[in-house]
Structure formats: structure tokens, C-alpha cells
Design a protein around this nucleic acid. Structure first.
Length: 545
RNA sequence: GCGCCCGUAGCUCAGCGGAUUAGAGUAUUGGCCUCCGAAGCCAAGGGUCGUGGGUUCGAAUCCCGCCGGGCGCGCCA
């Protein structure tokens, strides 16, 4: 069954095209005032100028020209014209309620789509260096990246979740030296403590385990390998506790080992976009919109991080990912231009805007009215593990995706911690548990619910709830397109709100069996939709709380 | 100084260029459990949409200036 909204939208747009060829397609809107119908089209106002006529006249002509087709589609009542030329649309009750059955029949697939064509997409996120525990920024990346990947999967794409693992370079050296210093019994501030070091308590833990493994304190290479393995294990454990799984861990060191870094340098040199200056090798990234040219090979002969970064992104293209989304903090925004410039300079036919980026602002953690900046284990920052320990995984994940990526996020621990009822995630979960509870109370055969006579649902609240359910697939499609999982969180919040409101106003388990089954069907569809939405955000949908 | 992002109710935030009252949550105030879960519902108060211009029939939304805030401007990653 075609979606009635899309049906009417298509009919109106076709009519508008005939009046003003080349006009942009106009989407139906949801009027604020319910008296103006379920949807409204402002297409007549939009094309009025191009057509050189009064909007109201155009609206009348559109309505006249489409009335037969609209009636035949059966999607809505006859169109109405209002105000300066708006076309108001009232859906038929039956078409509003269809979605209830659809949701029940499709189950876990409700809201999903089959993209045509299905793309091979990679989402790279977290990508923390193995030099310390994951911080709250990584948490936001994990929640965002995983939800974006799930949204794209739900649109039918083949999605790979990837973690780029920076296991080469100066920061690893710094870690190894820090572990070695701790192994020798030094602490930050002591004489002999490295100038550049990681000062968190966790380094002492690593050193202790390292020593008890019987390896020699002086062996820097052994300390390096031990520390990286240790922190990787710890990060993996944190990610597991967070409910995030990756398909691929890509190692920076492999780019060197497999000669991919040298290869990129050769290709860039061959492109004629490089030059030598002050003993270093530079790339003319300014030709691709960068502020200044960038050093590729330092005068000491080693490469800057940017070279393996380009090599890494080249492998993404070579591995067949035509769409790649990198989720990172805004503190990395300067690398966007640089990486794209490097890829362009390769002349490999990679599109200019490749890859896509979702940059998120940093997270500020508040507790007791003050900003928390320190964690015992990590020292200088709050960890993902801290947040999970304080408020639980579901709340952390829901909170971290409930804001647009580019807004600064204040994570109020007290809000999530002290009073559960103030927390939106519990509100949504509670709606789910409530439906489950009604079904437990009822104890009947679910098959009879699917077969319920939905036309018995006639109240405004029921129709509004059904209509809200009908928006779910479209909302998911938009959220996936815009890489904006916060839309899902807002949708779930409002769906739960409408359900709670309905639940308080009407009794589900009424005497009349037909009505009872119809209401149970509506509730079951709400439950299904809540569960599907929460699942995309990586949040559980409990049957009891 | 330059670049990117942000400024919407006391606080945390939605808001796709459209219809007389700009929305949620929270906080405040007042109601609702003989009845499917009160972790809930209903109602009230609270806003010059940072500011000044511009485009438009129409601007929180698009464009420009200014003010305020964040982040970035290494032969660090």
C-alpha cells in the first residue's frame, strides 16, 4: 500500500510542474494548527511568481485539475484551499490506521527501507589512539557513529563500522617511555620523569602488570608492545560495555609495513604537487583550498601524520567504499581540508567531497553544579567508563545522541543519576514497558490482535497516535540522509509522550472485545515502533523496569 | 588576526523558507491514583528567536556587518 502522504505529494507536484515547468518539488508540511488538516501544501505560493499569477488562483486550478486523481487514489478527503493559497489535506481515517497493521506485520523491519541502489558505506568512528582510556568525546563518537551506521543499514545499505587504530608514531613512543618511567618507580614530577609523558594513574597500572609479567624494565620495545596491547584490551572492554561493535580495526602500522605510505609519497611526488623546502618535502594543499601548504616528510626523514592519513583514506576508496563517513570531534576540523586535498592530489579519480565528515562539539560533564574535568584513572579527563558507571549504558547512549552533533553538549550527571524520572530515556523505555505490562495483564492470543478491526479506532488521540506511527519510516529516511540520529531521539520522545497521554485518557482493556483488540493493536504498534527506534540508538527496550 | 561552528523560555535543547498564539523537556505553581504501571497525565505562568541591515508576498530559518562563546591555525597526532 502506497503511503497516502507521498501519493498526494506526487499528484500535487505533477500538477505544479504543468503550471510552472522546472519548479522545485514541494513537500507537504504538517500544519501547527490541527484545524488546517493533516498536511498542507504551499506549492501554489511557491510557484506563484514563476507563473506570474495569484497564488490563490493557482491553488484553485491545481485542486480542480487533480480532484479526480485524488479521489481515485483514495488517500484523502477532497482538497481544501485556505488563506493565501495553501492546499489543505485531510487523510481518510482508514489510510491513517493502515500503518498499525503494517507495523505489526513487518515487526522488526517496520521503518526499514530497501535502498536502491544499496551502497557500500563505511563509517569510521572512535579511532582512539591506544595511549589511554576512552574519554567522553570518544563516547559521543561511539554513540553517534554507531547510530549513524545503524540508520544507514536500516535504509538498506551495506555498512562497515571501522576503527582506525593509531599504533605508530610519536604518541606511542611517549606512552612506552611513560610506562618505562613508572616501571622504574618514577612518578610525574620526579627527577628523571619524561618531559613529554602520559601522567594518568593507568600508566602505573600498566607498568605494574608489565613488571609482574617478568619482562625487563629497560626493554622499550617490549614495554611499547605490552602497553598498546593492554590499552587495546581496555578500550575493547569499554566499547563492549557501551554496546558498540566494529567490523574492522585498521592498523596505522600496517600502512607502513605494507609500503602504502611510501606508495602515496611516490604518487604525490609524481603528481608534481610537491616541492622541497628547508630540508622537508611539502605538498601544495593550498591548490585545494587549504590555508597553507603542508609538510609531508620532515627534515629528520620521518613522515607527518598526514601522510599515513591520506594513505589510509586511499585504501578506503580502493576497498570499494564510495561513501565514507568519518565521525570526529570538531578539534579535528582542520584535517578535513587536508585529507581531501591529499586525496585530490593523488589524481585517483576520488570525488572532491570525499570523505564525508560528521564533526561533533566537545562534551562538558557537569556534576553537583560544577564541571568535572578529572577522573582518577585517566587524570586529565572523564572517561566513557566513568559515565557508564555513573548513569548506565542506556542513559549515556541516549543522552549522547539526543543533540545535534555540532552543538556543544552538557552532560548533566545529576539529571541522569539522581532522579530517573527526569531522564528522557526512562520516559521512552517506560512507555515500552507499559505496553508490555498491558499485554501481560490481557494474556490473550497475539494473533487476534493482528486481525483486529482497526476501523473501531475513532478518537482524535487514536488517529493522532496512528499518524505519528506513520511518520516513523520517513523520519528514519531523513535522519539517515542527514546523518542526524538526534531526530530519532526526539521522535521517540514525542511518540512516548503521545502514548502516555492516550494511556491516561483511555482504557485499553475495555469490555467490548472488538474495541479492546483494536486498541491492543494500536498499543502493539507503538511498542514495536519504540523498540525499533531504540534499537537503532543502541538503547534497550525493557519489558519491565 | 584568519578559518570553521554556535547564540531560540531561568536551565538543557528541537525547529525542513510559509497559515492569527515560535515548540519540547526541566524548573516554578495548581490539579489527577476505587480502575490496564503516578518512572505517568492535565493545566498555568515564562521568549525583543544575540544585534543592526538586506532579499522576499512572508525570515528563528537565506545573505552581509557587528557583538558574545567554542574549536582550530606545528617539520604534534
Amino acid at each position: 500500500m502506497a503511503d497516502p502522504k507521498e501519493t498526494v505529494e506526487a499528484i500535487l507536484n505533477a500538477a505544479a510542474q504543468r503550471l510552472a515547468p522546472g519548479a522545485a518539488a514541494s513537500r507537504l508540511e504538517r500544519p501547527r494548527n490541527p484545524g488546517h488538516g493533516d498536511y498542507a501544501s504551499s506549492v501554489a505560493l511557491q510557484i506563484a511568481k514563476a507563473a506570474g499569477r495569484k497564488p490563490r488562483d493557482i491553488a484553485e486550478e491545481i485542486v480542480r485539475a487533480t480532484q479526480d486523481e485524488v479521489a481515485k487514489s483514495g488517500a484523502c478527503e477532497p482538497l481544501e484551499i485556505a488563506g493565501p493559497g495553501f492546499i489543505n489535506i485531510r487523510l481518510k481515517q482508514a489510510s491513517k490506521l493502515d500503518v498499525v497493521r503494517t507495523a505489526l506485520e513487518q515487526g522488526a523491519a517496520f521503518g526499514r527501507a530497501r535502498a536502491a541502489p544499496a551502497e557500500k558505506i563505511q563509517v569510521e568512528f572512535v579511532s582512539a589512539n591506544p595511549t589511554g582510556p576512552l574519554h567522553v568525546g570518544h563516547g559521543r563518537q561511539g554513540a553517534l557513529g554507531d547510530a549513524i551506521a545503524s540508520l544507514l543499514e536500516a535504509q538498506g545499505h551495506a555498512v562497515t563500522r571501522e576503527f582506525y587504530y593509531n599504533d605508530a608514531g610519536a604518541q606511542i613512543e611517549k606512552l612506552a617511555l611513560s610506562v618505562q618511567a613508572r616501571a622504574k618507580g618514577l612518578a610525574p614530577g620526579d627527577a628523571g620523569w619524561p618531559l613529554e609523558a602520559y601522567n594518568g594513574e593507568y600508566v602505573a597500572d600498566i607498568a605494574r602488570d608489565y613488571l609482574s609479567s617478568g619482562k625487563p624494565p629497560d626493554d622499550l620495545e617490549a614495554a611499547r608492545a605490552f602497553a598498546v596491547a593492554y590499552l587495546r584490551r581496555e578500550q575493547d572492554a569499554d566499547l563492549q560495555a557501551f554496546g558498540v561493535k566494529f567490523d574492522v580495526y585498521y592498523l596505522e602500522s600496517s600502512l607502513y609495513a605494507e609500503g602504502k605510505v611510501d606508495e602515496v609519497v611516490r604518487k604525490l611526488a609524481a603528481s608534481g604537487k610537491t616541492y622541497e623546502k628547508d630540508g622537508a618535502l611539502w605538498l601544495r594543499t593550498t591548490e585545494y583550498g587549504d590555508d597553507k601548504d603542508r609538510v609531508m616528510r620532515k627534515s629528520d626523514g620521518t613522515y607527518t601524520y598526514f601522510v599515513p592519513d591520506v594513505a589510509y583514506h586511499l585504501t578506503k576508496w580502493q576497498r570499494g567504499f564510495r561513501k565514507v563517513i568519518n565521525v570526529q570531534g570538531t578539534d579535528h576540523h582542520s584535517t578535513v581540508v587536508r585529507v581531501r586535498a591529499g586525496l585530490q592530489a593523488l589524481g585517483a579519480g576520488i570525488p572532491q567531497g570525499y570523505p564525508d565528515y560528521v564533526l561533533h562539539s566537545l562534551v562538558k560533564v557537569m556534576r553537583g553544579g560544577e564541571e568535572v574535568k578529572i577522573s582518577k584513572r585517566a587524570g586529565a579527563y572523564v572517561t566513557v567508563r566513568d559515565l557508564i558507571d555513573w548513569v548506565g549504558r542506556d542513559a549515556v547512549r541516549f543522552f549522547l545522541v539526543s543533540r545535534k552533533a555540532d552543538t556543544e553538549f552538557v552532560f548533566d550527571v545529576d539529571l541522569a543519576l539522581q532522579k530517573n524520572d527526569e531522564n528522557p530515556v526512562y520516559y521512552v523505555q517506560y512507555a515500552h514497558a507499559r505496553v508490555c505490562s498491558v499485554f501481560a495483564q490481557w494474556g490473550g492470543d497475539p494473533a487476534r490482535v493482528v486481525a483486529a478491526d482497526l476501523s473501531l479506532l475513532k478518537s482524535d488521540r487514536e488517529l493522532a497516535l496512528a499518524q505519528r506511527l506513520g511518520e516513523f519510516p520517513e523520519m528514519l529516511a531523513t535522519a539517515a540522509k542527514e546523518l542526524a540520529p538526534h531526530s530519532v531521539a526526539f521522535y521517540l520522545r514525542s511518540l512516548a509522550g503521545e502514548f502516555h497521554s492516550y494511556y491516561n485518557a483511555e482504557r485499553v482493556l475495555v469490555e467490548d472485545e472488538g474495541l479492546r483488540l483494536a486498541r491492543l493493536a494500536l498499543c502493539a504498534a507503538v511498542r514495536r515502533t519504540l523498540a525499533n527506534g531504540l534499537s537503532l540508538l543502541g538503547v534497550s527496550a525493557p519489558e519491565k523496569m
